[in-house]
Computed example of a mutant assay.
Amino acid sequence: MNATTQSKISYSDTLKARKAHLNGLINLVKPRRGGATKIETMTISAINAEISIIEQQLKKRG
């Protein structure tokens, strides 16, 4: 049998990719015109909180 190949992605690279993904989501949720709805505001706030946690984890690792 063939052994399965596992990727060798570091945890730091995973965090950086997640941060980039979340930044992309913010661009999708950001209101184009007018004010943001409560849902949009809460979503952006939650995404920013997650990005902040990721940045703290990256600082600890590097």
Rank of each mutant, 00 (worst) to 15 (best):
N2R: 12
N2T: 10
N2W: 01
A3M: 10
A3R: 14
T4D: 10
T5S: 09
T5N: 06
T5Y: 04
T5C: 01
T5A: 10
Q6T: 14
Q6W: 11
S7L: 11
K8T: 13
K8V: 12
I9V: 15
I9E: 15
S10A: 09
S10F: 10
Y11D: 10
Y11W: 11
Y11C: 00
Y11N: 06
S12T: 14
S12F: 11
D13W: 00
T14N: 07
T14A: 10
L15R: 03
K16T: 10
A17H: 01
A17T: 09
A17R: 08
A17I: 02
R18W: 11
R18L: 15
K19M: 11
A20F: 03
A20L: 08
A20M: 03
H21T: 10
H21V: 04
L22E: 08
L22M: 09
L22N: 09
L22K: 04
L22Y: 09
N23P: 00
N23A: 09
N23F: 04
N23Y: 07
G24K: 08
G24Q: 07
I26P: 01
I26F: 06
N27R: 13
N27D: 15
N27K: 14
L28Y: 06
L28A: 09
V29A: 07
K30H: 08
K30N: 06
K30A: 03
K30L: 07
K30P: 00
P31N: 13
P31I: 13
P31E: 11
R32L: 12
R32V: 13
R33G: 06
R33V: 12
R33C: 06
R33E: 12
G34S: 07
G34F: 04
G34T: 04
G35M: 14
G35K: 15
A36I: 08
A36W: 09
A36F: 09
A36C: 09
T37C: 08
T37L: 06
T37P: 07
K38D: 14
K38R: 13
I39R: 09
E40S: 03
E40W: 00
E40H: 00
E40R: 01
E40G: 00
T41G: 07
T41Y: 07
M42G: 12
T43D: 05
T43C: 07
I44T: 11
I44C: 04
S45Q: 14
S45Y: 13
A46T: 11
A46I: 03
I47D: 02
I47W: 01
N48G: 07
N48I: 05
N48M: 11
N48C: 05
A49D: 15
A49Y: 12
E50Y: 00
I51T: 03
I51P: 05
I51N: 09
S52L: 04
S52D: 13
S52H: 06
I53L: 12
I53P: 01
I54F: 00
I54M: 03
I54V: 06
Q56G: 13
Q56E: 12
Q56V: 02
L58Y: 00
L58G: 02
L58I: 02
K59G: 01
K60T: 06
K60L: 03
K60W: 00
K60V: 06
K60S: 05
R61W: 08
R61K: 14
G62T: 08
G62I: 06
G62M: 08
